[in-house]
Nucleic acid binder design. Structure first.
Lengths: 208, 208
DNA sequence: TAATCATCGTTAGTTTATTAACGATGATAG
DNA sequence: CTATCATCGTTAATAAACTAACGATGATTA
C-alpha cells in the first residue's frame, strides 16, 4: 500500500483532535503556526495539508474551526466503531491491552488471541482472550480489518500470512521483523525496543 | 539533532542482532539480500549501509559474519550498560515498565518518576518509582542521558524542559505532542494510539 | 581453461517529505 | 483613506531516504 499519505494522515488526526478542543473552548479560528507547533512541522506544511481538503483560511484570522473540524472528522472518522484484534498475549500484548482500553471512543480491541491454552478463555483488562485456532472464524464473522501483532519475531510472518488470508487489511507490527505482505495491505512497524536502543546509541555517541 | 542517520541506525542495530545469531549458528557469511529481507529494504540499501563501515564482502560468498559483527557492535554498543529513566507511571508507563524489563542486557530502566505520591516510593515490575521532586538530582548523580516520557500530553513539554536542563540528551516521547527541544537533543516520537488510529483510518478507507 | 552467474561496490536517479519563497488578502492602526 | 503587516494559497526548491543500474569480481561449472 502506498505509504504516501501516511505522515499527513498522522498530522490530520492530530489537527482534528486539537481543533475539536478549540471548538469546545468556544474559539472560532486557528492559525497554521499553532497547528505546526502541535505536530512539529512548518506552517507551510500545515497549509499544504489543508489545501487538499479545500479548507480555506483568511489572513489575520486563520482557519474557521467549525468548518475545519467538520471537514476533517468527516474524512478521518467513519461513523462506526472500528474493531481491532490483538495477536500475542505476552508481556507486550498485555501491556498494550492494559494501556489502550477505552482510550479512543471509536476504536475497540474486541478480542486477543494466543496459542498458549493457559492464557486463553479468560478476560484480561476487559478483553476476551481466545485460542488462536478461533482466530480465522472470528475475523471473518466479525469482519475485522485491523490487527495488532505482538507475537515473538519468529512467529510474526506466520501470523501475518494467516490473518491477511482471513481478511485483515491493516497491521500494526510490534515484532522486530519486516513483514512480507501484499501491496494492498497497510503495515506499520512499531518497535519500542529498537527505538530505545537507538536512543541509547545516540546518547553514547554524544558522550564521546 | 540531525535525524539523518536515524533510519540507518535502526537497520544497523537489526543487522547486528541478526549477524550475532548467524555467528552463534556457526555460519561464516551473510548476503545483502538476507539482511534486506530482515529489515524490509532493498539489497542496495544494505550494501550502502555497510559501505560506510568499510565492511567488504565478496561476490558468491557475501559478507564475513565475524568481522561484520565485530565492526558493527564496536560502533553500536558502548561497553557500558546504558541507564534509562521513565517519567510518568500511568497506564502506558506501567505497560512499558512491565514489558521492557531485562529485555536488552545493556539497557536498563533504573528508575521511574511520577508526581502522584500514591504511586511513588515503591517498586513496580522491578523498577523503583520515585517522586518527581527527586528527578533532577537523580539524573545528575547517576549521569542519566536517556529518558522515556509517558506523561499526559499537557505535561510532556514541562517534563522535557526539566530533564533536558538536568542533563538528558535523548528522549523517547510517547505523549501525543511534538516537543520543542534544543537541536543537540535527540527526540523520537512514538505514539501508539496515533498509529492505531492511522491503521483504522486506512481500514475504513479501503472499505469504501 | 573459459564461460557463466550471483553478488559486490558505487554512482546516478527516483520518490517522498518538507521547507522556502512570494504575491495576494484583508484586518488594523495611523 | 492609506499604509502596514501577519497570514494565506501556491509553486519552486531542498533534503532525506531509498532503488535502479551497471561494471567488476571471483567462485562454480562445463
Amino acid at each position: 500500500m502506498r505509504k504516501s499519505k501516511s505522515r499527513s494522515v498522522e498530522r490530520l488526526l492530530r489537527y482534528c483532535e486539537f481543533v475539536k478542543k478549540r471548538l469546545e473552548e468556544g474559539k472560532s479560528y486557528v492559525f497554521s503556526h499553532e497547528l505546526a507547533d502541535l505536530v512539529g512541522v512548518s506552517p507551510a506544511q500545515v497549509r499544504q495539508d489543508l489545501m487538499v481538503f479545500k479548507i480555506v483560511g483568511t489572513p489575520q484570522k486563520g482557519y474557521p474551526v467549525e468548518e475545519f473540524y467538520r471537514v476533517l472528522s468527516d474524512h478521518l472518522k467513519s461513523g462506526i466503531k472500528t474493531k481491532i484484534i490483538l495477536v500475542g498475549v505476552g508481556n507486550l500484548g498485555r501491556a498494550i491491552l492494559s494501556y489502550f482500553i477505552k482510550r479512543k471512543p471509536n476504536l475497540e480491541i474486541v478480542a486477543a488471541f494466543d496459542s498458549d491454552p493457559q492464557k486463553t478463555e479468560r478476560i484480561y483488562s476487559g478483553t476476551r482472550i481466545l485460542h488462536i485456532s478461533k482466530m480465522n472464524d472470528f475475523i471473518l464473522k466479525e469482519d475485522i480489518k485491523v490487527a495488532l501483532i505482538t507475537v515473538p519475531a519468529d512467529s510474526a510472518q506466520i501470523v501475518a500470512d494467516q490473518i491477511i488470508k482471513a481478511g485483515i487489511k491493516c497491521i500494526l507490527n510490534f515484532a522486530p521483523v519486516a513483514l512480507k505482505t501484499p501491496p494492498e495491505v497497510f503495515v506499520e512497524q512499531l518497535d519500542i525496543t529498537l527505538s530505545i536502543e537507538k536512543a541509547a546509541y545516540f546518547a553514547n555517541k554524544e558522550a564521546q
